[in-house]
């Protein structure tokens, strides 16, 4: 399991549920890297999005 919440950036271990965050992520891209919790650079385009962590590289939809 990844260590950080992609929406709020907090550690999942301290606050395991993040139910609202998970629901919100249906209508927004992740803003934080789930591996290290850093804020990512995110680009949304009409048909998708991409997100990049300086340390862990790119993710996209």
């Amino acid at each position: 399991m990844s260590g950080f919440c992609g929406r709020c950036g907090r550690a999942l271990s301290t606050e395991p549920a993040h139910v609202d965050c998970a629901a919100a992520l249906e209508l927004e891209p992740p803003r934080y890297c789930t591996q290290c919790g850093r804020r990512m650079k995110v680009q949304v385009v009409p048909t998708g999005w991409s997100a990049t962590c300086v340390e862990h590289g790119a993710l996209s939809s």
């Binding site: 950036g9 803003r31 995110v42 680009q43 385009v45 048909t47």
Partner: peptide
């Protein structure tokens, strides 16, 4: 806010326009 500053490059802009037109 968690939104970081970022610029879209021109090829990606054109690609977004193409995908939009395709709809």
């Amino acid at each position: 806010s968690p939104v970081r500053a970022v610029w879209l490059d021109i090829p990606s802009l054109v690609e977004a326009a193409k995908q939009t037109a395709a709809t």
